[in-house]
Nucleic acid binder design. Sequence first.
DNA 1: CCAAAAGTGTTCATTCTACACCCATGG
DNA 2: CCATGGGTGTAGAATGAACACTTTTGG
Lengths: 245, 245
Amino acid sequence: MSDSSDVLRASIGLAVSTVIFALRDAEGDTSGPAVGTDAPATVWLPLVRRIREPQCGRWALPGGMVELDESLEGAARRNLAETTQLEPAYLEQLYAFGDVDRSPDRRLVSIVYWALVRPDEAERLTLGENVQWFPADELPELAFDHNLIVDYALWRLRTKMEYSAIAHAFLGDEFTLAELRGVYEAVLQKPLDPANFRRQMESSGAIEPTGGVVTGGRHRPPKLYRYTGDVQLVDAGPLTPRISA
Amino acid sequence: MSDSSDVLRASIGLAVSTVIFALRDAEGDTSGPAVGTDAPATVWLPLVRRIREPQCGRWALPGGMVELDESLEGAARRNLAETTQLEPAYLEQLYAFGDVDRSPDRRLVSIVYWALVRPDEAERLTLGENVQWFPADELPELAFDHNLIVDYALWRLRTKMEYSAIAHAFLGDEFTLAELRGVYEAVLQKPLDPANFRRQMESSGAIEPTGGVVTGGRHRPPKLYRYTGDVQLVDAGPLTPRISA
DNA sequence: CCAAAAGTGTTCATTCTACACCCATGG
DNA sequence: CCATGGGTGTAGAATGAACACTTTTGG
């Protein structure tokens, strides 16, 4: 091998991976409202099968190397688009994993992001032999330390759901309170009181009625709501300079 | 230059930096209890002056490159010991900063940690022309994006102080409730009701009386407490596998 | 009219907050 | 005995959980 290859092998490789969450019903069908229906929605994530050593054949998080001229988040978005065609509604850095022995080949540090996609966006994932949705709670043994990473991402999703306003990243622009509550129930895996949930949401100032209602159900038509944007969605502190929506 | 140097320049450099917090009184003296005295303690952090380009002369966070055979946290601890002689009581990953233009020289990604040190440990910092304590709220213009990083670390410290039990990392093994309250007041920058603070701490199960008291004050001798360890200090979820003290 | 989900009202328990008050020590 | 901070008690506000009850639609 050439000199440059040896030098590269002697440097630390920098990669990004992303844990992508979407809500789908128990059978794995994202068509339809996905929440608010009879079947309780659950958290799913897409994985890709490794087609080269090391760990060839194992399922893994989508990701790849960071290019010299792209930011970390940019690299995450590019890899996401390339391997899954997904453009997440929410994307946040999770953690940098860099244990010496986490990759058997060369030394690799992975900046891991986590993402939320809307149901309609989740449809764009081109399924195949090497790309597949998995329920977040019953994953196979993944490549490298990816099981640990998914556990951590799930924990972050659940804790952040309790004090932040990220739930809308699972929904479209307009939604009913039942749909929003369905998101919370699916992620937190526990039923919520509809009456109290309504009051908490309304008093938070995070949502406002659009004026529209949903007709067609065999019951009282629910109002539609949208997010006001008044409430800061996340808590990244001095980071995320107000934009990023 | 040789071929290997060009290749290295064409790869992404991986560094670690650490934001180190300690409590010192307004004049910057860490001798004595540092909290619980008359002068209200404030948050300080040590910076090192850059002695080479780029940004030569500017104050910056202590840090350095990650070696091939050390973990990210290990690299943070080593750089801390080498540049400041400090061994923090608490050390946690903060964020990975990797914007393309954050370093004018080569492409550099920094995994940033934040740390808390005890007052006696803070004494070990060997001050000099190029190593100095600064009050966290009135920093000069730092090198690179380090002002943003410190702001973020300060925000994390303050938010985490409200729901976690990290305050003891600023104190010794034994402490009075007034000292512990002093830590909270210094970090959160607001006075706390002694009576309510006592009840909250006692009911949390995080502390227990040692049986000892502090005599010598011109008032009723306060009891000494220690942390029980029953309460998980931090909230890193699936990470931090129970050990790490 | 009936079933079902939307939406409102009310009660009770828990927690937070403010502040009055007593205790123990040094001077 | 007095000043000072340590420590306890308690009333009112605020929040949250539980659940009864009314409203509006399709069938």
